[in-house]
Amino acid sequence: MFYQTRAKNLTVLLVLGGLALYAVYGGYFAREIVVEIALLAMLAIALDLVAGYGGMISLCHGALFGIGAYLFGGLTALVGTPVWLATLAALAGTALFGWAVGAVTAGIGGIFFIMATLAFGQMAYVIVFEWRALGGDDGLAGIPRTDLAGIGLDTGDSLTFALLSLAALALSYTIAAIALRSSFGRTLTGIHANEERMRALGLNVRRHKAAAFALSAAIAGAAGLLAAQHTQYISPEYLVWTVSGEALIVVILGGIGTLAGPLVGAVVFVALEHVVARFTDYWHLVIGILLIAAVMAGGRGLYGEIERLLAPGPGTGKGGDGA
Protein backbone atom coordinates (compact mmCIF):
# COMPACT_ATOMS: atom_id res chain seq x y z
CA MET A 1 0.00 0.00 0.00
CA PHE A 2 1.24 3.44 -0.93
CA TYR A 3 1.64 6.15 1.67
CA GLN A 4 2.84 9.64 0.78
CA THR A 5 5.23 9.85 3.74
CA ARG A 6 7.33 12.78 4.88
CA ALA A 7 10.40 11.10 3.40
CA LYS A 8 8.64 10.96 0.03
CA ASN A 9 7.53 14.58 0.22
CA LEU A 10 11.09 15.63 0.96
CA THR A 11 12.62 13.46 -1.75
CA VAL A 12 10.22 14.64 -4.44
CA LEU A 13 10.55 18.29 -3.46
CA LEU A 14 14.34 18.07 -3.35
CA VAL A 15 14.55 16.44 -6.77
CA LEU A 16 12.08 18.84 -8.39
CA GLY A 17 13.54 21.91 -6.67
CA GLY A 18 17.12 20.90 -7.42
CA LEU A 19 16.35 20.27 -11.08
CA ALA A 20 14.47 23.59 -11.37
CA LEU A 21 17.45 25.48 -9.90
CA TYR A 22 19.83 23.60 -12.17
CA ALA A 23 17.71 24.55 -15.18
CA VAL A 24 17.48 28.22 -14.14
CA TYR A 25 21.20 28.69 -13.41
CA GLY A 26 22.75 26.01 -15.57
CA GLY A 27 22.46 27.26 -19.13
CA TYR A 28 21.31 25.46 -22.28
CA PHE A 29 23.08 22.13 -21.75
CA ALA A 30 21.76 21.85 -18.20
CA ARG A 31 18.22 22.46 -19.42
CA GLU A 32 18.52 19.70 -21.99
CA ILE A 33 19.60 17.35 -19.22
CA VAL A 34 16.72 18.45 -16.99
CA VAL A 35 14.23 17.66 -19.75
CA GLU A 36 15.86 14.30 -20.29
CA ILE A 37 15.65 13.49 -16.57
CA ALA A 38 12.06 14.70 -16.23
CA LEU A 39 10.80 12.60 -19.15
CA LEU A 40 12.73 9.50 -18.07
CA ALA A 41 11.35 9.95 -14.55
CA MET A 42 7.79 10.16 -15.91
CA LEU A 43 8.33 6.94 -17.83
CA ALA A 44 9.77 5.30 -14.71
CA ILE A 45 6.83 6.46 -12.57
CA ALA A 46 4.48 4.96 -15.13
CA LEU A 47 6.39 1.68 -14.96
CA ASP A 48 6.60 1.67 -11.15
CA LEU A 49 2.83 2.04 -11.00
CA VAL A 50 2.26 -1.32 -12.70
CA ALA A 51 5.52 -3.09 -11.80
CA GLY A 52 6.09 -1.92 -8.22
CA TYR A 53 2.49 -1.84 -7.03
CA GLY A 54 0.73 -4.23 -9.40
CA GLY A 55 3.55 -6.76 -9.79
CA MET A 56 3.38 -6.45 -13.58
CA ILE A 57 6.96 -6.17 -14.81
CA SER A 58 6.48 -4.65 -18.25
CA LEU A 59 8.93 -4.53 -21.11
CA CYS A 60 6.69 -2.48 -23.37
CA HIS A 61 6.88 0.90 -21.69
CA GLY A 62 9.39 2.11 -24.27
CA ALA A 63 6.78 1.31 -26.90
CA LEU A 64 4.10 3.18 -24.94
CA PHE A 65 6.47 6.15 -24.79
CA GLY A 66 7.01 5.88 -28.55
CA ILE A 67 3.32 5.48 -29.32
CA GLY A 68 2.62 8.70 -27.42
CA ALA A 69 5.36 10.44 -29.40
CA TYR A 70 4.20 9.08 -32.76
CA LEU A 71 0.51 9.75 -32.18
CA PHE A 72 1.32 13.33 -31.30
CA GLY A 73 3.97 13.73 -34.02
CA GLY A 74 1.92 12.08 -36.75
CA LEU A 75 -1.24 14.02 -35.97
CA THR A 76 0.48 17.42 -35.77
CA ALA A 77 3.16 17.12 -38.46
CA LEU A 78 1.28 15.01 -41.00
CA VAL A 79 -2.42 15.69 -40.43
CA GLY A 80 -2.18 19.22 -39.08
CA THR A 81 -4.27 18.51 -35.99
CA PRO A 82 -4.17 21.34 -33.40
CA VAL A 83 -1.65 20.67 -30.65
CA TRP A 84 -4.20 20.45 -27.80
CA LEU A 85 -6.32 17.95 -29.73
CA ALA A 86 -3.26 15.90 -30.73
CA THR A 87 -2.20 15.86 -27.06
CA LEU A 88 -5.56 14.50 -25.96
CA ALA A 89 -5.59 11.98 -28.81
CA ALA A 90 -2.06 10.81 -27.95
CA LEU A 91 -2.96 10.35 -24.28
CA ALA A 92 -6.19 8.52 -25.13
CA GLY A 93 -4.47 6.41 -27.78
CA THR A 94 -1.65 5.23 -25.53
CA ALA A 95 -4.12 4.59 -22.71
CA LEU A 96 -6.17 2.44 -25.08
CA PHE A 97 -3.10 0.49 -26.22
CA GLY A 98 -2.07 0.05 -22.56
CA TRP A 99 -5.57 -1.11 -21.69
CA ALA A 100 -5.38 -3.73 -24.44
CA VAL A 101 -1.96 -4.92 -23.26
CA GLY A 102 -3.25 -5.14 -19.67
CA ALA A 103 -6.42 -6.98 -20.65
CA VAL A 104 -4.71 -9.51 -22.90
CA THR A 105 -1.82 -10.25 -20.52
CA ALA A 106 -3.92 -10.29 -17.32
CA GLY A 107 -4.04 -14.07 -17.13
CA ILE A 108 -0.33 -14.55 -17.80
CA GLY A 109 2.10 -14.92 -14.94
CA GLY A 110 5.80 -14.50 -14.26
CA ILE A 111 8.33 -14.62 -17.04
CA PHE A 112 5.63 -15.22 -19.66
CA PHE A 113 4.01 -11.94 -18.72
CA ILE A 114 7.28 -10.10 -19.32
CA MET A 115 7.68 -11.84 -22.69
CA ALA A 116 4.11 -11.00 -23.69
CA THR A 117 4.63 -7.30 -22.96
CA LEU A 118 7.89 -7.46 -24.89
CA ALA A 119 5.99 -8.93 -27.83
CA PHE A 120 3.44 -6.11 -27.71
CA GLY A 121 6.27 -3.59 -27.66
CA GLN A 122 8.08 -5.20 -30.59
CA MET A 123 4.83 -5.29 -32.54
CA ALA A 124 4.39 -1.55 -32.10
CA TYR A 125 8.03 -1.01 -33.04
CA VAL A 126 7.75 -3.00 -36.26
CA ILE A 127 4.55 -1.23 -37.28
CA VAL A 128 6.11 2.21 -36.82
CA PHE A 129 9.35 1.11 -38.45
CA GLU A 130 7.58 -0.25 -41.54
CA TRP A 131 5.01 2.51 -41.91
CA ARG A 132 6.35 4.67 -44.73
CA ALA A 133 3.95 7.54 -44.09
CA LEU A 134 5.46 7.93 -40.62
CA GLY A 135 8.91 8.20 -42.15
CA GLY A 136 9.91 4.66 -41.27
CA ASP A 137 13.52 4.41 -40.30
CA ASP A 138 14.14 8.05 -41.29
CA GLY A 139 11.90 9.34 -38.56
CA LEU A 140 9.47 12.21 -38.58
CA ALA A 141 10.36 15.91 -38.38
CA GLY A 142 8.50 19.20 -38.10
CA ILE A 143 6.71 18.51 -34.83
CA PRO A 144 5.46 21.67 -33.07
CA ARG A 145 5.63 22.43 -29.34
CA THR A 146 2.63 23.37 -27.24
CA ASP A 147 1.88 27.05 -27.83
CA LEU A 148 1.49 28.80 -24.49
CA ALA A 149 1.90 32.34 -25.84
CA GLY A 150 -1.62 32.99 -24.62
CA ILE A 151 -0.36 32.90 -21.01
CA GLY A 152 2.89 34.66 -21.87
CA LEU A 153 5.13 31.59 -22.12
CA ASP A 154 7.46 30.86 -25.01
CA THR A 155 7.85 27.10 -25.11
CA GLY A 156 10.54 27.50 -27.78
CA ASP A 157 12.75 28.82 -24.98
CA SER A 158 14.88 26.09 -23.42
CA LEU A 159 14.28 27.19 -19.81
CA THR A 160 10.52 27.44 -20.26
CA PHE A 161 10.39 23.98 -21.80
CA ALA A 162 12.55 22.50 -19.04
CA LEU A 163 10.28 23.94 -16.35
CA LEU A 164 7.25 22.74 -18.29
CA SER A 165 8.71 19.22 -18.30
CA LEU A 166 9.25 19.42 -14.54
CA ALA A 167 5.65 20.56 -14.09
CA ALA A 168 4.52 17.55 -16.15
CA LEU A 169 6.65 15.30 -13.93
CA ALA A 170 5.14 16.80 -10.77
CA LEU A 171 1.65 16.30 -12.20
CA SER A 172 2.40 12.69 -13.18
CA TYR A 173 3.69 11.91 -9.70
CA THR A 174 0.64 13.52 -8.11
CA ILE A 175 -1.80 11.61 -10.32
CA ALA A 176 -0.01 8.31 -9.64
CA ALA A 177 0.11 9.01 -5.89
CA ILE A 178 -3.59 9.88 -5.74
CA ALA A 179 -4.50 6.75 -7.69
CA LEU A 180 -2.35 4.56 -5.42
CA ARG A 181 -3.77 6.05 -2.23
CA SER A 182 -7.35 5.42 -3.34
CA SER A 183 -9.21 2.15 -3.18
CA PHE A 184 -7.94 1.62 -6.72
CA GLY A 185 -4.39 1.43 -5.37
CA ARG A 186 -5.44 -0.73 -2.41
CA THR A 187 -6.98 -3.20 -4.82
CA LEU A 188 -3.87 -3.14 -7.02
CA THR A 189 -1.72 -3.92 -3.96
CA GLY A 190 -4.08 -6.78 -3.19
CA ILE A 191 -3.66 -8.23 -6.69
CA HIS A 192 0.10 -8.01 -6.33
CA ALA A 193 0.01 -9.80 -2.98
CA ASN A 194 -2.49 -12.52 -3.86
CA GLU A 195 -4.37 -12.52 -7.11
CA GLU A 196 -6.36 -15.64 -6.31
CA ARG A 197 -7.58 -14.13 -3.04
CA MET A 198 -8.75 -10.99 -4.88
CA ARG A 199 -10.74 -13.17 -7.27
CA ALA A 200 -12.31 -15.00 -4.37
CA LEU A 201 -13.24 -11.62 -2.90
CA GLY A 202 -15.16 -10.87 -6.08
CA LEU A 203 -12.71 -8.74 -8.04
CA ASN A 204 -12.62 -8.79 -11.83
CA VAL A 205 -8.83 -8.97 -11.84
CA ARG A 206 -8.51 -8.66 -15.60
CA ARG A 207 -10.47 -5.43 -15.69
CA HIS A 208 -8.50 -3.93 -12.82
CA LYS A 209 -5.15 -4.83 -14.34
CA ALA A 210 -6.23 -3.35 -17.67
CA ALA A 211 -7.28 -0.11 -15.96
CA ALA A 212 -3.96 0.12 -14.12
CA PHE A 213 -2.09 -0.48 -17.35
CA ALA A 214 -4.14 2.18 -19.14
CA LEU A 215 -3.30 4.78 -16.48
CA SER A 216 0.35 3.81 -16.61
CA ALA A 217 0.32 3.98 -20.41
CA ALA A 218 -1.21 7.46 -20.40
CA ILE A 219 1.65 8.72 -18.19
CA ALA A 220 4.23 7.00 -20.41
CA GLY A 221 2.50 8.46 -23.47
CA ALA A 222 2.60 11.95 -21.91
CA ALA A 223 6.36 11.58 -21.50
CA GLY A 224 6.61 10.44 -25.12
CA LEU A 225 4.63 13.32 -26.57
CA LEU A 226 6.73 15.78 -24.55
CA ALA A 227 9.87 14.10 -25.91
CA ALA A 228 8.49 14.60 -29.43
CA GLN A 229 7.90 18.27 -28.66
CA HIS A 230 11.34 18.58 -27.11
CA THR A 231 13.40 17.36 -30.06
CA GLN A 232 10.65 18.17 -32.62
CA TYR A 233 11.85 15.09 -34.42
CA ILE A 234 11.11 11.43 -33.63
CA SER A 235 12.38 8.10 -34.87
CA PRO A 236 11.48 4.45 -34.27
CA GLU A 237 14.41 4.42 -31.81
CA TYR A 238 11.88 5.58 -29.22
CA LEU A 239 10.08 2.25 -29.37
CA VAL A 240 13.11 -0.03 -29.16
CA TRP A 241 12.82 -2.45 -26.29
CA THR A 242 16.06 -1.21 -24.69
CA VAL A 243 14.15 1.97 -23.77
CA SER A 244 11.86 -0.27 -21.71
CA GLY A 245 14.94 -1.90 -20.23
CA GLU A 246 16.39 1.47 -19.27
CA ALA A 247 13.11 2.46 -17.62
CA LEU A 248 13.18 -0.77 -15.63
CA ILE A 249 16.79 -0.12 -14.57
CA VAL A 250 15.81 3.37 -13.41
CA VAL A 251 12.89 1.96 -11.40
CA ILE A 252 14.98 -0.73 -9.71
CA LEU A 253 17.95 1.56 -9.14
CA GLY A 254 15.71 4.22 -7.61
CA GLY A 255 13.58 1.76 -5.62
CA ILE A 256 10.77 -0.33 -7.09
CA GLY A 257 7.41 0.12 -5.41
CA THR A 258 8.28 3.45 -3.84
CA LEU A 259 7.08 5.87 -6.56
CA ALA A 260 9.53 8.53 -5.29
CA GLY A 261 12.47 6.26 -6.06
CA PRO A 262 12.13 6.46 -9.86
CA LEU A 263 12.73 10.23 -9.64
CA VAL A 264 16.01 9.63 -7.82
CA GLY A 265 16.86 6.81 -10.22
CA ALA A 266 16.30 9.02 -13.26
CA VAL A 267 18.57 11.77 -11.86
CA VAL A 268 21.37 9.31 -11.12
CA PHE A 269 20.98 7.44 -14.40
CA VAL A 270 21.13 10.52 -16.62
CA ALA A 271 23.86 12.14 -14.54
CA LEU A 272 26.03 9.02 -14.78
CA GLU A 273 25.33 8.73 -18.48
CA HIS A 274 26.67 12.24 -19.06
CA VAL A 275 29.37 12.49 -16.41
CA VAL A 276 30.89 9.03 -16.65
CA ALA A 277 30.63 8.96 -20.42
CA ARG A 278 33.06 11.88 -20.46
CA PHE A 279 35.78 9.66 -19.02
CA THR A 280 35.01 6.24 -20.39
CA ASP A 281 32.85 4.45 -22.91
CA TYR A 282 31.98 1.90 -20.25
CA TRP A 283 29.41 3.98 -18.39
CA HIS A 284 26.94 1.07 -18.57
CA LEU A 285 29.39 -0.87 -16.43
CA VAL A 286 29.11 1.75 -13.68
CA ILE A 287 25.30 1.62 -13.91
CA GLY A 288 25.49 -2.18 -13.75
CA ILE A 289 27.61 -2.17 -10.60
CA LEU A 290 25.33 0.41 -8.97
CA LEU A 291 22.29 -1.67 -9.90
CA ILE A 292 23.77 -4.79 -8.31
CA ALA A 293 24.64 -2.80 -5.18
CA ALA A 294 21.11 -1.36 -5.04
CA VAL A 295 19.51 -4.79 -5.40
CA MET A 296 21.81 -6.38 -2.83
CA ALA A 297 21.20 -3.58 -0.33
CA GLY A 298 17.65 -4.83 0.17
CA GLY A 299 15.84 -4.15 -3.08
CA ARG A 300 14.51 -0.77 -2.04
CA GLY A 301 17.09 0.99 -4.18
CA LEU A 302 18.50 4.46 -3.67
CA TYR A 303 15.22 5.65 -2.19
CA GLY A 304 15.48 2.94 0.45
CA GLU A 305 18.78 4.46 1.57
CA ILE A 306 17.29 7.97 1.58
CA GLU A 307 14.39 6.74 3.70
CA ARG A 308 16.82 5.17 6.15
CA LEU A 309 18.67 8.49 6.46
CA LEU A 310 15.52 10.58 6.85
CA ALA A 311 13.56 8.27 9.12
CA PRO A 312 16.00 6.20 11.15
CA GLY A 313 14.87 3.45 13.47
CA PRO A 314 12.55 0.52 12.90
CA GLY A 315 9.83 0.87 10.31
CA THR A 316 6.20 1.34 11.25
CA GLY A 317 5.31 -1.94 9.63
CA LYS A 318 3.64 -0.07 6.80
CA GLY A 319 6.97 0.85 5.25
CA GLY A 320 6.84 -1.83 2.60
CA ASP A 321 4.81 -0.23 -0.13
CA GLY A 322 4.43 -2.84 -2.79
CA ALA A 323 2.59 -5.61 -0.99
Binding site: R186, T189, G190, A193, N194, K318, D321, A323
Partner: peptide, 15 residues
Protein backbone atom coordinates in the same frame (compact mmCIF):
# COMPACT_ATOMS: atom_id res chain seq x y z
CA UNK B 1 -4.24 -14.74 3.07
CA UNK B 2 -4.45 -11.50 5.00
CA UNK B 3 -2.86 -8.65 3.03
CA UNK B 4 0.27 -7.90 5.03
CA UNK B 5 0.93 -4.55 3.41
CA UNK B 6 -2.56 -3.28 4.24
CA UNK B 7 -3.88 -2.33 7.67
CA UNK B 8 -6.78 -4.23 9.28
CA UNK B 9 -9.16 -1.46 8.26
CA UNK B 10 -7.82 -1.46 4.68
CA UNK B 11 -8.14 -5.24 4.44
CA UNK B 12 -11.81 -4.88 5.36
CA UNK B 13 -12.39 -1.86 3.09
CA UNK B 14 -10.93 -3.77 0.17
CA UNK B 15 -13.46 -6.57 0.52
Amino acid sequence: DVFGALSVRENLALA
